[in-house]
Design a protein around this nucleic acid. Sequence first.
RNA 1: UGGGGUGUCGUCAAGCGGUAAGACACGGGCCUUUGGAGCCCGCAUUCGGAGGUUCGAAUCCUCCCACCCCAGCCA
Length: 688
Amino acid sequence: MPEKEPTSPVSFIKGLILEDLKTNKYAGRVHTRFPPEPNGYLHIGHAKSICLNFTLAAEFGGLCNLRFDDTNPSREEVEYVDSIKEDVRWLGFDWADREFYASDYFEKLYLFAVKLIGKGKAYVDDQNAEQIRESRGTLTLAGRESPYRNRSVNENLDLFERMRAGEFPDGSRVLRARIDMASSNLNMRDPVMYRILHAQHHRTGNRWCIYPMYDFAHGQCDSIEGITHSICTLEFEDHRPLYDWFLDEIEIYHPRQIEFARLNLSHTVMSKRKLLELVREGHVTGWDDPRMPTLSGLRRRGYTAESVRNFCERIGVAKRDSMVDTALLEHCLREDLNKKALRVMAVLRPLRLVIDNYPDGQVEELDAMNNPEDPAGGTRKVPFSKVLYIEQEDFLEAPPKKFYRLAPGREVRLRYAYFVKCVGVVKDDITGKVVEVHCIYDPATKGGDSPDRRKVMATLHWVSAGHAVPAEVRLYEHLFTKADPAQEEEGLDFKSRLNPTSLEILRSCKLEPSLAGASRGSHYQFERLGYFCVDTKDSEPGKSVFNRTVTLRDEWAKIRRTEQETATARQKTQAPPVETTATIEDFSKLDLRVGVVREASLVKGADKLLKLGVDIGEGRTRQIFAGIRAFYPEPEKLLGRTVLVVANLKPRQMKFGVSEGMILAGTGEGRLGVVTFEGDLLPGDKVS
RNA sequence: UGGGGUGUCGUCAAGCGGUAAGACACGGGCCUUUGGAGCCCGCAUUCGGAGGUUCGAAUCCUCCCACCCCAGCCA
């Protein structure tokens, strides 16, 4: 019995366990298991199950086994068992020496089957898959009994032995339980127990050519391991009568199956099939792409095991289908990282700031706190000089009402440094963009305090230009634009909801020098920006790559967002559609990128469109629809061509799919050509 | 139209006949050398709907409605 009643709200599962403990059903034991099939990587949904099984056992002083459900050699691989073990370990759970495989029990399972045959409860069926399906009946109609259902025990025994011996080809026969072809539960209509599969198994090699089905394996494996509570997801509820039937008929120790609702997370997908599809089709870079909900993806993104565990505890366990908001996961992450992450300064989109009255060549080493949440975290030195970088978005020439960062004539604090006041700007002759900000500083405010109690509206982060460490930073957003991308409507599948801006790569970031030796996987807070970690795969000593794990909560971004929303809402309700003409000023806002055409094809049902796959250096190809078919009747001729892409357009939903950009083209006298050029420009290079 | 489940705030989720916890999100305020963090306040007269039982119902009963799962030799 547990020493104390659990303090957190008792989940219905705990309630059932408490009940069993009270009636002494399992002699006071609680023993669970986490039973993954090694056919894919673990995701956050599995984490829910792992946490549930391991913590439940621990709470009641019991154990939890790790058991691989490897009953189907045709789709399972060692790569997956290795990744699964790594992920469970990373999450912080220990299965000690209790690492089991369903394949460990193949011999025992075979004997159980023989026993059922002996009792007249199982038979060898010579029908093929087609015939079995056809005779199973429907949801409302009973099935038909197989013509082989009443074979003698001896004949069944002989046939089953010969199935094992390899006398028959794949699919020619199966072993079936003899239950009830008229059952309203389809799982009870003589389910298949064994199928013939001449396949190499990752553990048993060629020793077997018949393999048990899930239903015939799972309960018996639980039984063999002495599992008390076999916790699984809702879709197995219908299988419970079968789970119970096998155990009762085989007459062995009987665990209890309990079902709970699997986790759904907003803005992502959780099914292995869909995740595999994203990997195979290159929408992500792999199972561990930081945008994936896989544990390896979350880990690479910078999630901590503690935050994932905490999340799993907070979402609770119940039986109703639900969709948890990703915001909760992010909240758990920030909560954890806020305590742990060292604060540093990094500028993602640099804007030069020159302090006119600061002595040329002077460098000061200023003290900065490593973590204000943890006074014991100490301080470090950060170099300060005349020329600095600040964030582009921290300066606005014409600041709107609620913007209280730097602007002409305005004074702000540079964190840990000085108050500076903007006295001028330098603009690009052609674009008119501000490329440099000039300030004067107040030497009396060294460290960031003003002796005269003068207040500033904002504190900015900065990096000394002469000391900056260059870095690449990858910004991530939700993988999908819709909360529930799996919900199919209007014939659109989940991939049409992929977020075209789920990854943005910034290549000219400037870091404070203390980050020069940051080791792979370490977490930092870039002050005012978010939490970042050193990429475990692509970061090299001289060329560091950081992943944005999650942003900080951002009031200013929220203000902008709501203002934008009300503006577009207003537009929708009143503004009549206007002809828009691009002005030269508007052109400066276009993000023109060099792209290489990787795919090009005709669009069925659209006589003007071509569908292009264009690489603009984002690690994936963008899908772009262009109305240039009349001029490029043979789209394959565009393959490999370098084109000019407008990259910052809002993705447009078209009848045939989402178009994520526009290709620049020129016209002249009934002819049209896309703008192409030669030269050593790389995909993603910016063009102006 | 068969069977198995589930419906409590925008999203999760407690509640088990005695008068709707908590978290996230959201809104407001305080504080602040991160528009971060922290702190404070607000946020379901009502529990899918309709009847009924009861002094009293989200909890018990009846009927209805909605959603999810099941017709793999996948798990």
